[in-house]
Design a protein around this nucleic acid. Structure first.
Lengths: 160, 160
DNA sequence: TTCGTATTGATATGTTATAACATCCGGTCT
DNA sequence: AGACCGGATGTTATAACATATCAATACGAA
């Protein structure tokens, strides 16, 4: 669906339906329920290659009569994150669809500060020097957040 | 204030006064002003080896008559972050004193989910695989956030 | 002193996130 | 069918985090 690390995907509607199907299969396999709100929330995230705030998602949902109150969006987003279909971008307090759901992975993000696009790389930070430092200290890592902010290829070009 | 790697400092009052002196020198050298609110805010952060929310800081400041409104705390924290004396922990929406101010560095944090202590490591993530991936994609990294959540040595022990 | 800028004071508001509790819906056990 | 149970939703309220704006003041440079 995309280049080396996820900026640009050539065929977005294919990418979306593939992801949705994968999510559906995964839920079926694990006995999870991809309810209308959850499914639509995932579609909303997939429709953009960027991070959306919970209230942005809520606006979309509200426009379609799927719920008007914050918990609606947060519950759906929490479900998607727990199920591995989406990630929270801490630096933005926003959410983005996962580009390879199902797999247990430690994602790293490249976030464009100009166009808000988000690319998901898959480096394993806990394996590098940070992991060494943690082990040396006796610290047990459970979760890592790796987020790089900067300019994506398109926006670097524009700036020139 | 305990255990290895940046968790500990054996002598906290020395550590605090050292840091404060460094901050003062750095400000003097650069023509920045370490005003009472800013200085006190730094002291408050240094007094704990953990991250404090802006409103936690504000409570301390308010108790000492240094300001009661949110902007007071946010301005002081922004100043400290910009000057390199503190960092924002994105995963917690909270702030912590920098353990080696002045130096330009790309910090990485180990955050205990049990006791909220924070250790600052100094790995350079943009130099590793993430940096390679970014370069390959044409993405220009300007800032990185690396935060690992888990259990610190003390709390790993307690859990057992 | 005068000017310009950084800082502070103060009010209001915007944004993100969760607590708490009622209700509904789908499955299962008897 | 009826009783029950658990997950999902609906709804209200509020907690927690953050900034815009504008007036007043302090500070250093010219």
């Amino acid at each position: 669906m995309s280049g080396p690390i996820g900026f640009q995907c050539q065929n977005h509607s294919v990418c979306m339906s593939t992801m949705l199907a994968q999510a559906q299969d995964h839920c079926t396999a694990l006995g999870l329920r991809l309810t209308p709100v959850r499914r639509r929330t995932l579609e909303i995230l997939l429709a953009e290659h960027r991070a959306l705030g919970a209230y942005d998602v809520l606006k979309h949902l509200a426009a379609e009569g799927l719920g008007t109150q914050p918990p609606v969006a947060y519950r759906a987003l929490d479900f998607l994150v727990k199920a591995g279909f989406a990630h929270k971008i801490e630096a933005l307090n926003a959410y983005t669809a996962c580009v390879h759901p199902g797999q247990d992975h430690a994602p790293a993000f490249l976030i464009c500060r100009n166009c808000q696009s988000v690319a998901e790389a898959d480096t394993a930070p806990a394996k590098g020097r940070l992991g060494d430092a943690a082990r040396a200290a006796g610290f047990v890592i459970e979760r890592t957040v790796v987020e790089a902010t900067g300019l994506c290829p398109d926006c670097v070009g524009e700036a020139a």
